[in-house]
Design a protein around this nucleic acid. Structure first.
Lengths: 151, 151
DNA sequence: CAAAATTAAATGTAGTTACATTAAATTCCA
DNA sequence: TGGAATTTAATGTAACTACATTTAATTTTG
């Protein structure tokens, strides 16, 4: 089913307009599924995203600002997302030694364990895209990058 | 700049995983710009989306459920979005004659005027994608459709 | 050096969202 | 027909988001 049928819209202003709607619609489609996968683990996609960023640091601490820069969506509340993860003991806060305004965040073993559990499910979910073929997925990535570069 | 640099992530689990992140990131990129465009007009992208759906009806009334089915994201609050538009006198509510549970919504001239004003700006914004070329945009649309069809 | 400007994080807020529940009307079917 | 199930919309709620402001620390610069 193409985007036209999905949102019951037969005409679009332009192919670019259609692509724009298609990206937003597909993003919601992904978000819904991620939310469903993560729900049993008691975390939101945003919190999951932050945990993955922290793991990607391989033990190197990262500040709240650093997290913000790596997040998929706007900053706003990286600080509060970290709060949530702190409550659940998935991460640890530490005053940054060389800048006392900043706060270093480190993922704790409990956070890594959670990610390991979830990874299996997410990797399995992502594996369904494989049958599209690597070339097409690469092309999709290139086209999305070019789309954002339009100015 | 590719998605890797944008979110400062050098490695991805797979090309499909990367595409998934890329779609979500691009959707936020679009959303941010839409929000900025719409802000002076006092409506949110969601409200704008509903207005466009109503206009697409060309005068034929549509129920709240009908709006939901055409929305880009999950239902949840089509009803409250209509409330907001009602407050601003952009739309009108009317009990559906053949089903008294349902409520028909119709866009009012004031709503059409607002859309006309905004259209110019959105069309201009969307025009920047044209230089990517229609073929590439069509391909992008096809790849997104295929991405969602993966099962 | 000291005041001004900037930066990092936290927080207040108003609005929005997802999800569940409710209320009313309609459809199903025994 | 009439009670159960379903459908449509509205609403209660808890959480989340964007944006602005605040607080504290650092950097700039006169």
């Amino acid at each position: 089913m193409g985007i036209g049928e999905e949102i019951k819209q037969s005409k679009f202003n332009s192919e670019g307009s259609k692509a724009s709607l298609n990206v937003v619609f597909t993003s919601h489609w992904i978000g819904k599924q991620h939310t469903d996968i993560l729900k049993p683990f008691g975390i939101t996609p945003q919190q999951f995203n932050v945990l993955r960023i922290l793991r990607g640091q391989n033990g190197t601490p990262i500040t709240v600002l650093g997290i913000m820069e790596r997040m998929l969506d706007r900053m706003s509340n990286a600080s509060r997302l970290v709060d949530k993860l702190l409550e659940k003991k998935y991460v640890q806060r530490r005053e940054c030694p060389n800048d006392r305004r900043a706060v270093d965040i480190i993922i704790l073993p409990k956070g890594l364990e959670l990610l390991e559990q979830i990874d299996k499910i997410i990797l399995n979910w992502e594996s369904k895209f494989e049958k599209m073929g690597k070339e097409k997925l690469q092309l999709l990535n290139e086209l999305l990058d070019e789309f954002r570069r339009s100015e």
